[in-house]
Design a protein around this nucleic acid. Structure first.
Lengths: 161, 161
DNA sequence: GCGCAAAAGTTGAATGTTCAATTATTCCGC
DNA sequence: GCGGAATAATTGAACATTCAACTTTTGCGC
């Protein structure tokens, strides 16, 4: 790693702007949800993903995938959500390794109560400041970033010594 | 909150793409730094900001501002970094409330060792996948987002004395 | 069908972050 | 020059996340 290619001034500024804006947005979401609904954004995400699933239920593994949480993080979070009565975990019949996570009516209600404020915050912080043109560009940029990731995931063993 | 303006399908997709790509990037940075240099990204940020300061030192408050950390988060993190011998905290002479945080030679060396791998990861994950045109657009989008935030009264910009 | 690797999920300890309270010092109006 | 507001920073407890180790169950090769 001798010839490091550093960031140009322009890239440096862009990178700093990225760090600043993502951090600000994340904090804004966290603060809004915590203040108005008493839940962290991570929990909102879990409830939201469950609510969209058929029967409002998913296996832990699938829920981990759609929320992009590690198995462990999800397990701990679900323990908390279960205490609150917002989700329930039920052993699956066919494959006895798997656990079904399901949204309770209370959990759905909590999500419904939280959603408007959350959506408003997202709109306010992310979409309102951008022109339609910028929103389109942004979408394409994000798609390019995730696509690069996906490519990486599939071509795991290229470029040997 | 009766008339909530929900996200359009297009916005919804963009929002999800945002969540996915920022999370993936964050995880990639975290993983790379932890693996290759044994430090979380937060600590790298602290070292980096100190290294750029005149005399490689800043007051805790100023350091908190440039890293965008809360005072508490910074205090805890600095305690860890001090244990590692990467920073030092010294009481200020003039104003005895303030503490100067300074980078030690060991801390600077740790930063220098970590930097190339970190920069490469940033380039690989963020800049490489984008065209020059997209990079410019991205910069403008991020600027618009932070500008909107600054306009909000959530003020955090001060000039140096 | 046996043996063993893989898959699903959980657990506890270590680490990191937030939140509220606290200490110490300086600033400022009078 | 006194008293209270503001500023700088820390602390400990509660909460969240990661990491490595573990249990249970299923799938697979033979």
């Amino acid at each position: 790693m001798s010839g490091t290619r550093w960031l140009s001034d322009e890239e440096q500024r862009t990178w700093r702007a990225y760090l600043a804006s993502t951090q600000l947005l994340q904090e804004a979401l966290e603060r809004q949800l915590q203040r108005d609904s008493g839940m962290p954004h991570a929990y909102y995400t879990i409830l939201a993903m469950l609510s969209e699933a058929p029967g409002r239920a998913l296996t832990m593994t699938r829920l981990a995938r759609v929320t992009m949480f590690s198995a462990s993080r999800l397990s701990h979070a679900m323990a908390r959500l279960e205490e609150k009565g917002w989700v329930r975990r039920v052993k699956h019949g066919q494959d006895r390794r798997t656990t079904m996570a399901e949204l309770t009516p209370e959990g759905f209600a909590a999500l419904e109560a939280a959603a408007p404020g959350h959506v408003q915050e997202v709109r306010h912080r992310l979409f309102d400041p951008l022109t339609d043109e910028q929103t389109r560009q942004f979408r394409d940029i994000l798609a390019a970033l995730t696509a690069a990731y996906a490519r990486e995931g599939h071509e795991s063993g290229l470029a040997s010594p």
